[in-house]
């Protein structure tokens, strides 16, 4: 079953077409990567999925809901990012964007936002329900913190954590909303080979343990080839190839796109 389906997605900034007629399908429970040279439109596509941008053309459907559709469709819809999160999509950022002056636990608690039910008036009178909810949330947050391997660091300010731990915390914060689909934007950027290996294992673990569908943007080809079940290649906002890791490695257009530019020569 498809959890995410994008048809003909187009996003323009002035004269620049960042995403151009992009089609994309994501079956539930898979790990799929989007690769492509810098500026190919990968992060822009993420921003279209999460509702940060309204798209100019095409339709994005998630879990049976139209979440973003362009002016060319019968009635354009643009759901806000918070609404889309409530439907079950969570994300991380290329350049880690934690709430840096809040503690690790507080970051995760904010991530749990969509599961809180009590009204703010209950917070003033401290109703029993609200206290129970807070206690339960805290318990879950600690479980998550342990799950990503940050035992005992809950009271640390996010900005004080080491780089690798910040990446993990950001993933924990995204997981806190219990998403069906997790978007990871370059989760191994800036990591050393050791940390990268660990992160790769961790991502696989996420899917296998929690059954979350994962969509990945990544530059490290080793990671991509290792864990993706399918890969889409983007260049100039368009899809130039799609297939299993071994197919992509042999695809001449992909090699041209990368080597022709002299970027990311590992491919």
């Amino acid at each position: 079953m498809l959890i995410l389906k994008a048809t003909g997605v187009t996003k323009q900034f002035g004269g620049l077409i960042a995403v151009n007629q992009f089609d994309f399908e994501l079956p539930e429970g898979k790990i799929i990567s989007i690769i492509g040279p810098n500026g190919a439109g990968k992060t822009t596509f993420f921003n279209c999925i999460t509702g940060f941008y309204a798209i100019d053309g095409g339709i994005i459907e998630f879990d049976g809901h139209i979440i973003n559709s362009g002016e060319d469709t019968s009635h354009p819809i643009h759901r806000r990012p918070d609404q889309i999160t409530h439907l079950g999509i969570a994300r991380t950022y290329q350049n880690i964007r934690l709430f840096s002056n809040m503690t690790a636990i507080e970051n995760i608690l904010v991530g749990q936002h969509r599961h809180f039910k009590t009204h703010w008036v209950e917070a003033i009178v401290r109703s029993k329900r609200m206290l129970q909810e807070e206690a339960k949330a805290l318990e879950e947050a600690i479980t998550l913190l342990n799950f990503v391997g940050l035992q005992g660091l809950g009271d640390q300010l996010a900005s004080n954590l080491p780089y690798g731990a910040q990446r993990r915390l950001e993933i924990a914060r995204a997981l806190a909303s219990k998403p069906k689909l997790l978007l990871l934007d370059e989760p191994t950027a800036g990591m050393n080979p050791n940390e990268t290996r660990e992160m790769t294992r961790f991502i696989q673990h996420l899917r296998d343990e929690l059954g979350i569908t994962i969509l990945l943007i990544e530059h490290d080809m080793k990671v991509v080839m290792n864990i993706s079940e399918s890969i889409s290649v983007m260049d100039f906002g368009m899809k130039i190839a799609e297939g299993t890791p071994s197919e992509i490695q042999r695809n001449s257009r992909v090699i041209e796109a990368y080597l022709g530019r002299g970027a990311a020569a590992q491919a």
């Binding site: 806000r80 950022y93 709430f99 507080e106 904010v110 609200m130």
Partner: peptide, 30 residues
């Protein structure tokens, strides 16, 4: 009221919003 709200979920929402509006929205905060 201030103290209770500050220590509640709403207080955390405010704080998150003060830190980074875009991310706060992406966390599901209206």
């Amino acid at each position: 009221i201030s103290a209770r709200l500050r220590d509640s979920r709403l207080g955390r929402q405010w704080m998150a919003m003060r830190e980074d509006e875009d991310v706060a929205e992406a966390m599901g905060i209206n």
